[in-house]
């Protein structure tokens, strides 16, 4: 709550989709982050690994999520710009997208250019992740309102 204490509390819990796209199955990070977010009072739609972009888009649409968190440990984050395009195409460009995992610096720049709000690297703390997502949910909802 550190970064958001100056704001009005959210009218409803943040709704976050935690997913992995592509072929990599290392899902421990996404599971841990899903639990962090749940323990911070968020409602987390969790999918497990190996998802395809149309699946993620459909799920984000049906669940009307605020934020999508993509975990990437083996270059799958390079699919994220395609995910962003697909989201915009589906009229879901308002959703905040974050990436966490192993992301080299030059590729982080690519993701940021594509509109990714945050990239969390190894060593990011629970507090940092939770606070950033809460901040992002505030921004997403303020823009939508």
């Amino acid at each position: 709550m550190t970064a958001t204490t100056h704001r009005m509390p959210l009218a409803r819990p943040p709704k976050v989709l935690v997913t992995k796209i592509g072929f990599d199955g290392h899902d421990r990070g996404s599971r841990i982050v899903a639990a962090y977010l749940r323990d911070a009072g968020m409602e987390v739609v969790y999918t497990g690994p190996w998802q395809e972009i149309p699946f993620v888009v459909n799920l984000a649409l049906e669940e009307d999520v605020d934020v999508i968190g993509v975990s990437s440990l083996a270059t799958d984050h390079l699919l994220v710009p395609k995910l962003m395009d697909a989201l915009r195409e589906a009229g879901l460009g308002h959703i905040g997208v974050i990436v966490g995992g192993i992301v080299p610096d030059d590729e982080e720049a690519v993701l940021k250019d594509a509109g990714v709000a945050h990239v969390f690297h190894a060593g990011s703390s629970r507090e940092e992740i939770v606070a950033s997502i809460e901040e992002l949910v505030h921004t997403v909802r303020a823009q939508a309102a």
Binding site: A34, A35, R38, M42, E43, Y46, T47, P54, F55, L59
Partner: peptide, 22 residues
């Protein structure tokens, strides 16, 4: 279910309903 302690929840039922995507 939401956690009675934190209010958070993992919404996981639909993981088993993936056959209907698209």
């Amino acid at each position: 279910p939401s956690s009675p302690l934190t209010g958070g929840a993992i919404l996981g039922d639909r993981i088993r309903m993936t056959a209907h995507t698209g």
